[in-house]
Design a protein around this nucleic acid. Structure first.
Lengths: 249, 249
DNA sequence: GAGTGGTCTAGACCACCCT
DNA sequence: GGGTGGTCTAGACCACTCA
C-alpha cells in the first residue's frame, strides 16, 4: 500500500479524480522502473485492494496508461509493462500543451515569439472560430524549441472576446495554455486534422529544416461549452517529434 | 423503445457487446438525420431507460460516438449532435480496415496489387515483427482506391508462421483484414507512428501525385496476445483522405 | 481449473449548466 | 433549483489464457 501519491505533474489542470491520481501514480512507478519491461503488473483485483478503490477505477487508470503506450493489457493473461520501444513519446489523443509534453519527455522546452498582434480575423480563421468575418483576434507566430532545437512552428489565433483584460499582455511570455488557465479559460476538447506539408514559407530564422517537410496539426480548441477558443496550426518539423497513436479495435 | 438494431456494418469482427450495439444503433439514427445538427439527444438516463441498459453502458456508447466526432458531450448541459463540419471522416484511434472506412464514407473502395511475394524479412521488418533476421514473410505492395482515385500506397509485411495454409493464396484478392479474419487471425491493437514524407519513389503507375507528398502511417498490428502480426507502411496521398482526431483533456 | 481481464448493473453522490 | 453529465462503488457473470 502506497501513500505518497503521484509526483506533481501539471499539464492541463484537471479535476484530480481517483482514476487520474492512480494513473499518475502507476505512471511514476513504471517510469521509475519498479517493474521490468515485459513483466506483469499486479492484477486489477490486487491493485484495487491495495489502493482501496473499486476495480472499475483501476481499469480506467490502466486504460489511460495503455493509450499512452505504457502498458499492454491482455485479456486473460494480465497487464504488462509495454515493450514496444525505447522512449515515451507524444501521444496524440490526449490534449495537452506542447511545452508540457516536452518537459515530460525530459527535455527543456523553449519558445521564441516572432509576432503577437491584434488584427481582424481572416476568412478561414473566422470560419473556424465561429466569428463574423473581420472580428478582432489575437494572432501569434512562434517557434517551439526542445533543448534549443526547433521542433515546431506554430500559428495560433485566439478569440479576443474570451480573453479577460490583462491576459493579452501576459501572452507572449510563456506557455499559452498556462496563461489561459490562469485566467480561467480552459480548453477541454480539440478537433484536429493532420496533414503532410512541404513548404519553405512555414519556418523562419536560421536552422530551419532544409527539406521544408512538416506534419501539420490543424486544430480548433473548444471550451467545455463547445465555444471555439483558439485556432492553431502547428507545423512539426518532420523527424523532430514522434507522434504515436495506440489504435484499438 | 427500439427493437430493430443497428444496420449490419462489419469492420473488424468484435464481440457484439451491448455498448457496441447501442453505439451502432445511435450512429445509424444520427446518420439518418433523426436529430438535427446541434440539437440535444435524450439524456443518458432517458436513453438508459428506453434501451433497458444501465447508464454506464449508455455512457460507453456515447463516448465512442464522441471519439468519432459524431456527438458533443457537455457536462451539465447534455449531449448534442456534433456541428463540427460536414462529413464523417476517418478517425484515427479506432482500428479498422481502410477498405471498410472508405465504404462507410459512402465511396466505392478498390485495390490494385503490384506484388505479393514470399521473401526473407529485411532487417527493419524483422525488428518490428520480432522475427530473426531473414525469416520468411509475405510482402505486398498495393494501391488503395476510392471511387477509382488513388488514396494510398501500402507496403505490408505479414509473418508467414501465423498464416494457416491456404491463406496465402487468398491474399491478393480482397481486403487483407477480411482474409485474416476468415482464417481466425484477428488484429486487436496497433502501434502507429505518423510521418510526413516527400518522395517520388513511393507511388507508381499513372496519376500518381506530382508533388510526392504523403502522410505515412507506420504501424505494427498485434494479436490479442501481443504477438506482432503485420507491419504496414501506408502512404496516404496528402489531401485524398482527411485524418481527424478528437483530443480530450 | 484457477486466475486474469471484459462487460454490465443499480444505485449513489458530486460538479456543472441553465433559467 | 432542477436536470444533466462525471465519477465511483460492490458485486456479478462471462471470455480468455495458461499451466
Amino acid at each position: 500500500m502506497r501513500t505518497e501519491g503521484p509526483g506533481a505533474s501539471a499539464g492541463l489542470a484537471q479535476p484530480l479524480t481517483r482514476a487520474r491520481w492512480l494513473a499518475a501514480d502507476l505512471r511514476a512507478r513504471l517510469l521509475a522502473g519498479e517493474w521490468p519491461r515485459g513483466s506483469r503488473l499486479p492484477s486489477e483485483t490486487e491493485l484495487a485492494a491495495s489502493y482501496q478503490v473499486s476495480r472499475v477505477t483501476v481499469r480506467t487508470a490502466l486504460k489511460a496508461l495503455e493509450s499512452q503506450g505504457l502498458v499492454d493489457i491482455r485479456h486473460g493473461a494480465g497487464t504488462f509493462v509495454a515493450d514496444f520501444g525505447v522512449a515515451i513519446r507524444a501521444g496524440l489523443q490526449e490534449l495537452g500543451s506542447i511545452t508540457q509534453t516536452i518537459r515530460e519527455l525530459g527535455h527543456e522546452p523553449g519558445m521564441e515569439w516572432r509576432t503577437v498582434e491584434q488584427r481582424p480575423a481572416t476568412a478561414a480563421e473566422a470560419d473556424r472560430l465561429h466569428l463574423p468575418a473581420g472580428a478582432p483576434v489575437l494572432a501569434m507566430e512562434r517557434k517551439i524549441l526542445s533543448d534549443g532545437e526547433v521542433v515546431a512552428y506554430s500559428y495560433d489565433t485566439i478569440r479576443l472576446d474570451i480573453l479577460p483584460p490583462g491576459a493579452v499582455e501576459e501572452i507572449g511570455r510563456g506557455s499559452v495554455f498556462e496563461v489561459l488557465e490562469r485566467f480561467g479559460v480552459r480548453p477541454r476538447r480539440a478537433f484536429a486534422r493532420l496533414h503532410a506539408v512541404q513548404s519553405h514559407e512555414v519556418g523562419w530564422g536560421s536552422r530551419r529544416p532544409t527539406n521544408g517537410l512538416y506534419l501539420l496539426l490543424d486544430q480548433v480548441h473548444y471550451s467545455p461549452g463547445a465555444v471555439p477558443l483558439m485556432y492553431s496550426r502547428t507545423y512539426f518539423v518532420e523527424g523532430a517529434f514522434e507522434f504515436v497513436i495506440i489504435r484499438t479495435a
